[in-house]
């Protein structure tokens, strides 16, 4: 997590990880769980199934912790294991939707686990949230509220003690807000900041 203040030198991390220290395991988990989760979500299209596979994958990692010699080795194991688990899950669905059938075909065609798509997506969305951090106070709040709880403008207005109209004007449209985050769009920014 971003608020995780721990940092390790690679050899130190691996030594502790191999020794089965929970802190080192959690550190490794925090580095990779979301990438693996997003990958599983992409292929399984179900949060519950994706959580199952992530839990299972890291549990296997934990059970074999003494075997790992580097973080590359760890991430390689996580990718292969989660990919195989997704493939197995799709194969063992006795009833499939067309979409699941297509996903199974595409995933079986990949010889090695292909995380590029997930990694690119992660870079992009991390950039978005880094940019959100820089937004002026109220705008940041509106953005975070609407994407955390899926709140409607009226609910956000109530919570932030604003006039409904002010928030509806800003129609929490992701693309517009991102554009607003750019100093090149001062007019839109000004509109958003027209708060009571």
């Amino acid at each position: 997590m971003s608020n995780n203040v721990l940092s390790y030198r690679e050899d130190e991390l691996i030594r502790r990880f191999r020794a089965g220290e929970e802190e080192a395991f959690t550190f490794v988990y925090d580095q990779f769980y979301f990438l693996i989760y997003q990958y599983c979500l992409r292929w399984l299209q179900s949060k519950q199934d994706a959580e199952d596979v992530v839990a299972d994958t890291f549990l296997k990692l934990h059970q074999r912790c003494e075997q790992f010699e580097s973080t590359e080795h760890v991430i390689g194991f996580l990718k292969t294991t989660s990919r195989n688990a997704c493939l197995n899950h799709l194969r063992h669905l006795r009833i499939k939707t067309d979409k699941q059938e297509t996903l199974l075909q595409r995933l079986s065609r990949q010889e090695a686990p292909d995380f590029e798509w997930t990694e690119v997506q992660e870079v992009l969305l991390n950039l978005v949230y880094a940019e959100v951090e820089k937004l002026p106070g109220k705008m940041k709040e509106i953005f975070l509220l609407s994407y955390r709880d899926g709140l409607k403008p009226a609910e956000i207005a109530k919570r932030l003690n604003l006039k409904v109209r002010t928030v509806s004007n800003q129609k929490t449209n992701a693309i517009h807000i991102l554009r607003a985050a750019m100093p090149e769009y001062p007019l839109f920014l000004a509109l958003l900041l027209l708060l009571d």
């Binding site: 997590m1 769980y33 979301f34 975070l144 994407y147 955390r148």
Partner: peptide, 20 residues
């Protein structure tokens, strides 16, 4: 954007970690 929201990410992180 919802999935990547820091709070939602943390909820998923905690839920799975607890299970493990």
């Amino acid at each position: 954007l919802e999935q990547f929201h820091p709070d939602n990410k943390k909820a998923v992180r905690d839920k799975i970690l607890q299970r493990i």
